[in-house]
Structures are given as structure tokens and as C-alpha cells.
Design a protein around this nucleic acid. Sequence first.
RNA 1: GCCGAUGUAGCUCAGCUGGUAGAGCAACUGAUUCGUAAUCAGUAGGUCAGCGGUUCAAAUCCGCUCAUCGGCUCCA
Length: 676
Amino acid sequence: MSNATISIQLPDGSVREVARGTTPYDIALSISPRLAAAVVVARIRPLATTAVTATAADEPSEEAMYGAAVSGERLVDLAAPLTEDVALELLKENDEAALRVVRHSAAHVMATAILELFPEAKLGHGPATDSGFFYDIYRETPFTEADLAAIETRMAEVVARDEKFVREEESREAGLAEYQAKGEFMKVHFIERFTHAGETISLYRNGGFVDFCRGPHVPSTGRVKAFKLTSVAGAYWLGDEKNQQLQRVYGTAFFNGKDMEAHFKRLEEIKARDHRVLGRQLDLFSIQEVAGAGLIFWHPKGGLIRKTMEDWMREECIRRGYDMVFTPHIMRRELWKISGHDGFYGQNMYPPMELDDAEYRLKPMNCPGHILIYKNSPKSYRDLPARYAELGNVYRFERSGTMHGLLRVRGFTQDDAHIFCTPQQIEGEVAACIEFAESVLKTFGFEEFKVELSTWDPNDRKSYVGSEENWLFASGSLKKVLEAKGIPYREIPGEAAFYGPKIDIKLVDVLGRMWQLSTVQFDFNLPQRFELEYKGEDGELHRPVMVHRALFGSVERFFGVLIEHYAGAFPFWLAPVQVGLVPISEKHLEYAQRVKATLEAAGVRVELDTRNEKMNAKIRDFTLQKVPFVLILGDKESGSGSVSVRTRGKGDEGSVALESFLERTQALQAAKGVAL
RNA sequence: GCCGAUGUAGCUCAGCUGGUAGAGCAACUGAUUCGUAAUCAGUAGGUCAGCGGUUCAAAUCCGCUCAUCGGCUCCA
């Protein structure tokens, strides 16, 4: 191979020898002009093994954004001269990574528009996100809706100008000096943080706009074909609320208008299954302004679902060897001082209530209560493991902008349990917890979930309580259990609580969104603070190991997720009204009453619509309430003791004998399945 | 807590640049007695989130408070 040529390997395995400095665009053009027109960006992977370049120190979010891999694989501009032997992939308008490049380019287009309209604005960063892009802007006066519209209009002009994105390089020192002179404090920070002395920095220019940026971009602004600004929100510089507040202008961009339409349609669908919207439509729960933010009122129908969830959970706990306990909602402040919550968790607790005998505080956690039960009598190794479970109401004073329907509230119910055991019992207990968690998710209809193992950062010993031996042992047993069960997990060092490592289970709902619910956590702190003990076989006193575990996590949150997961169309066993009865006319009311009595005697939840409405209206209302079965009752049915069945999602299924319908409901009730 | 937006009947919303409120659905009453997603007519329903201010006059303008929404931050 001569020095003047390099080898380009294409995805089909073929290799081309081209002049050094040839660009991906040149290669696309040599393959076909249509390919050249459709290609957005190129992915290269150096073929030489030593080719791993110094991209490791780049900004983490950018890293995630472009998915840089260990092999030195990276995305480059189509106009980037190729200087080494590479495997080359030309990404067209059907590629996820290419879409992110379009979105990031759209962020540049937006920044261009903003600076043209508001020259005083200072730029932060403008990455692509999962659903679009944003750019952080510092400006004294906040942007208004009208500003957004103006920016969007100007963006369209920038796109129409079809300005080329040109990569330029200059010395880091020159770049820094320029940005410092212009007071671009954020750009200065980024250059200082992500580049090193002596390096060159890359700038991207389109028309009159230049931005310090790693790239890559689409070839020209004209390639940002479909975009829309969606909102503006506050964000702190570097995510620290002590810093100045920036304005984060959000938008989204797509390869074409059709994709964008589909995206907004999907947003509509998500909104239609929003648990806050369905909660009102289906009359499940409410939040009342007079009562206070973040406090949930469970209406009869929501309450019934909750009761079903809780009954199942209690039975399951008992079956699995837990003891159900109850502990008070308020306890003396002294207790919270011993547990440490009064100090390190104090800001999240409701303030103390001054009473005659002492100060009391509302409980934010159930652990101290369970510990007091454990401590109430001396324990021996024969008493372990002790598993105390409670559907405990806790109150946490969440900051006022953070509440969100059922998913983030101030008063909630944890299906909390604390297991006190010997170190030898740990593994078995953790395994049982994980199994239990799987059973919860499966029973409630979630097939997919992700597991995270949070461990400590061994380089930051002082941030964690407990001995190194304990930490290694506990993390090791958590890991062992996951591996023995063949559960894939992600380990996140440094994410553990200060008191112990934990396993979090995040479930994935029908829309692919993740929710953190179940958690299994070790605690080396509380047994020590409360001086928990048990007498071992050896006659000596030992300190038990403590495991916190919540599977629904919070009953409120789990319910919220359930509502969205099913879009309010709950499986038969959970549906608050399982069967709706529609008498065709008043003269069928009597038969309807008899059907109702028969079904109710068998434990079926029935609602009879006695209103003076046409049957069509009644069917419609039950359908909108997502009732699993609607039974139409007229002359034919009352004459033969049958019911005409209309099934949710299926429609009219014709008449069957009342007894056989009843059997069907009994089978569904027992199966707890989703299908009707 | 911070930035921005919003708050009108049970629900979804209209109400222009200030002249003390309107629709559809729901509710109630009556007529209708009906075969698989909305029968017709009538009635009733609102301290326009709350408090304060400007004004002859405030749903509308100003201030504060509360709540909600989208983010930041935080978290079950």
C-alpha cells in the first residue's frame, strides 16, 4: 500500500483503495449519486489495531450521544477527509445515529436563529436527546412563547439558506481567548473541561454562526428538513441549583414531516393514557387543592383496585414467610434522632409537632418501627430470619415543583419489609426477594424489566458506613444471586446508598418507558445505630444483617404505572367493575336484577345501568369506562336465562347461558391473566 | 425550591383592546321502551383558584399566595 492511498472497507466486505484525504461523500458519490444525496453522516472504524484515538476524555453526554465504542468507531462528517485505513458505513435517513446527528444539527440551526434574533444570548451546549434536542441559553430576560415562534420562523430561514456546516480547527489557546473576550463563560468551561493544553479545538461554522463543537453534523442546514420547537424550561448551569439559571429551549427534528407527524401522534397517545387523565375519566383517584399537594384521594373504583393489589400482596407475603406488622404514623422525635433520619433526612420530613410530653414527627420510612419490634424481645439465631412486612403509609415533604400525579407524591404507601438475618442467610433471603419481585411484576402484567446493581465507590470509603468486609460480602451475594438466576444486570459503582448496596428493578411499560419500583437494599447503618443483636449458636451476641425491600415500591406509584400500562383497561381480576349490565328496556330490569344477584353471589363485581337511556348509550358508557364485559339483557335473554356477551376489545360475542358466562368469569378471576 | 406557562359549571373549553359570564358533555325532570359505541325536550348549576390593589366599573390590569402543567434538581 502506498503512502498516498488508504483502504476503505465497505459494509459488504469489499475494499477500495482511494487517495488519502478522500471524503465519505466522495465515496458515496462514486457508488451512486442517489446514495450521496440520501446519506447523512458516516461511521468509521479504524482498521489498524493501534488506531484508538484520544476521544476517551470527551464529554460524557456527547459520548452517550454518539455511542463511541472502544474500537475507536465514531461518526464523522461526510466532508471529513479520511486519513487512515477504515471500515466505512454511510448512514442514511433510516438510522438512529443519523437521526441524532440531524437533531444536533437542528440545535445548531436553532442557536444560529437565536443569536441572529438575540445577539446578547450566551450559549451553553446543545445535544440531541432521545426525542429531540435542546440548547441551553443564558439570557437576562426569559424567552416568551412569541419568541419561540419567532425563533422557529428564523430557523426555517436558516434551513432555506442551506448553509454548509464547515469544520474548522484552531489552537485551544486562541479559541479560549476569543470566547473569554466575548464573555462566553459556558463555552470557556467546556473547552477547559473537555480539551487539553496544546490540542486543537474544533469549531463548526454555518453562515455567520460558529460554535465550539465536536461534531459531526449533517452536510448543510438544508438537511434539517422537519423540526419544531416544543418548549422552554429552566435548567441550572451544570445542573447545580446554586448556579445561574439557564433557559433550555427544547425542540425536535426528524428526517421528514411524516416521521414528525407520527411522533406528535404518539405523544397524543401517551397523553391519552396518562394516569392523571385516566384517573379522572375512570374516577379512580384525585388530588385536592384544599387538602394539599401530593396527597392522594382514592375514589371507590381506585380503592377497589388498591384493595385487590393489597390483598394479593398480603397473602403472598404470608405465604412466603413474612409476618405482617403495623407501626404508628407518628413517633417521638427521639426515635428519629436515634435512627439518624432527624438529621440526614430531616429536610424531607414534615416538621416536628410539639406536644405536651415531647416532639413527634410523621414517619418518612418504616424501618425504625420494624426495628423496635425486633428489639422488643431478645432474639436468638433460631428466630432468624425475621421478616416484618407492612403496607406502611409514609410522608415525605417533597419540594413543591416535584409532585407528579401518583408517581411523585408526599404521602404514600410502601409495601415495605425488613428482613433481619444472619450473614449465612443473606443469599437465600436475597434470592427469595428477587423471586418475589419477579412474581409481582409478572402477576401484574409486566414482562420486561431491567435490573441495576448499585455498589459503592471503593475510592470514596468515607462516604459509606460499614466495614469493607461487609460491603464486599453484601455486594458479592447480591451479584451471586443475580448470576445464579441468570438475570442480566447493570452494575453502577458509586450509586449505592451510604448505608449499603442495593438491587433496583426498573420495569419497562408498553411504551418502552422505565419506572423504578422494586428495590432490595442492604443496611449496615441502622443495625449499628439501634445496636441490634441476636444470640448465636456459639452463645455469643452477634449483629444481624438487615435488608430493606419494597416490591410495588409505592402502592401509589405502582398503581399509576398500572393505569398507564393498561391504558385503564385493567385485567379482569383488577377491574373495579367487571361486568356491566344493560337492560334493553324497563321491562327487562327485573331480569337484570336477577342476573346481578347471581353474579354478585359468586363474587363478580357488577354494575347495572338503570338509567332511562337507550341501550346504545349504556353500551357506550360502559365501553368508555373500559369495563371487561357488557351483558345485554332483552326478551331473548330473559326468556332463556341467557346473557348476550359483549367483550372489551372484541365486541358482540352472542348469547350464552348465564351459568357458562359465570364459569368464564370464575376462570378469569383465578387466572389473573390479561386476556379476556 | 428555581425558570416558564396555566387556573372560568362535575368534565372539555369559549369569553376581542376592562362594562359584574357562555357552549358541548355530565346531572336532574318529562316524553320515549328501544337489540350491540351518544333518543328528544326542558330544568338547574359558576364569590371566573384565593387574598389584596388600581378603577365609576375587574374573569379581563397590577401584586402576593395556593394549585396544576413542562423542565431543572431530587426520588419510592
